[in-house]
Nucleic acid binder design. Structure first.
Lengths: 253, 253
DNA sequence: TCGTTTATGTTCGCTTTTGCTCGAAATCGA
DNA sequence: TCGATTTCGAGCAAAAGCGAACATAAACGA
């Protein structure tokens, strides 16, 4: 199969938009419709896209709608938080990336970091970082959770215990006023706790929607975190607690 | 300015821009197009870049040409073998699926089996079986091998040891005349051996091309297998040995 | 210093890509 | 259901890009 500059770009656009049109791409690249059609035909032959009249869509199957919607939630601030977080991850270190859409955004920002060792219990993150050939990827074992591609359970915990990370990047479902991190899934809590225990530094990436929500399972106190990346100021009481604990808060946007 | 000076620079530009053009680089370095072409050819041969008409792009880890080609090889008999193998896997049992294009084909045939517990060290298989909501998927941990999505290493072996499978489905790189299963990758051998040790029954899926090939690392003897699924009769001597060992041979097509 | 190796420049057919045209197929609206 | 419109893919010619071969210049080693 032949290769063009356009192919990777087309795929990226398709991933972002969910679909591409022949006309739109032709204008975007400044080439004729015919050329784009040829591109799409080739990409479809390679099973990278699925051809439809007037354009192409992502190949069906693996996508989880509910999850995809969540992924698109709050996209701009998620990107900004991810960028800020990635900026504090030096090259050449060992990183754990936990389940979650926010941590996936961080993974995307790590695509050009060099010499990382990334351990993850998130299949999506492994798939994202495959493109960064300058980083070693280790996948923890575990039971595959279809809803979000996460790996959870005892196997996951046992594997994580075999490592010591320079930095762990985690998300959470909710944050309590008293500084506790909460999660919906009890299975994930054990994993998150183990991650925190095995890491020198721990970064939390969580947007403001987590402030006003609650969840049943307690992961840990924010005292255990080095830095929190978020998009709106923390409630005053919580901000004061973080200051006392030495937990940095990085505000983006 | 010599070649050795340009190469790292070219890579740096490629990392930053995502792509490089022959013309742009020629101007940037003040050399002729031909010189840049030579540079890019060398970088592409070293898998640092991917050559395209007019320049080069970052290698996309997901597109492993060699692997994609291998996947398309012998497709019809691969499908037939996979179908025969899946037919002998009862519903409601625990199955291990190893790395390999043949085992992936088996996974596709298992999409409508119910109540399976599938353990795999192959990311592709996990992605395939996500669509079968009636089966539990467990992914072993391990280092991700970009070339084929396989998970290998000690973590993988440790995880596998925690299970006992009703059936294991494995592939191999080659089969020796004396009935030994061989593999190219020494890291994969330990994994395969552990799989065999932890399984009540072991199925091998391997087309005839494996008969006339050789590989350096020994996995096990075919004596350890319950059944072999293949597309052409085994060499006579090997067939006799299998009969002695009680290893069934299932011929498809 | 001289011969050898390596990097670069130049030229020239050859291949790939692109744009264009046209008949066929798919989609849409009534 | 049928016709109008859009989209598609094949074939062809022009243009851009390519690699091979050879010449030249610089770097290297004895």
């Amino acid at each position: 199969m032949s290769q063009t500059f356009r192919h990777p770009d087309i795929l990226k656009i398709a991933q972002r938009e969910g679909k591409v049109t022949v006309e739109g791409l032709a204008e975007h690249f400044g080439v004729t419709l015919q050329t784009i059609r040829r591109d799409l035909t080739e990409l479809a032959e390679a099973n990278k896209l699925e051809r439809v009249h007037g354009g192409a869509i992502l190949p069906s199957g693996t996508t989880n709608i509910e999850y995809d919607e969540r992924r698109n939630l709050n996209q701009s601030s998620k990107l900004a938080m991810a960028r800020a977080c990635a900026a504090q991850i030096p090259e050449g270190c060992s990183v754990f990336l936990n389940i979650g859409t926010s941590t996936e955004a961080v993974a995307r920002e790590l695509l050009h970091h060099r010499d990382l060792m990334v351990v993850t219990n998130n299949m999506n993150i492994a798939n994202i970082l495959v493109d960064n050939t300058d980083c070693q990827i280790i996948v923890t074992g575990g039971a595959l959770r279809r809803s979000d591609g996460g790996l959870v359970g005892n196997i996951t915990i046992d594997t994580i215990r075999q490592f010591k990370f320079d930095i762990a990047v985690i998300g959470c479902s909710a944050m309590d006023e008293d500084g506790d991190l909460l999660d919906f899934d009890i299975h994930e809590v054990g994993v998150s706790q183990t991650i925190i225990a095995q890491s020198r530094k721990c970064f939390l990436v969580a947007d403001h929607s987590k402030f006003s929500r609650t969840a049943p399972a307690r992961i840990a106190s924010m005292r255990a975190l080095s830095t929190v990346f978020t998009d709106l100021p923390l409630p005053r009481e919580l901000a004061e607690r973080c200051a006392t604990w030495g937990t940095q808060v990085v505000l983006v946007d």
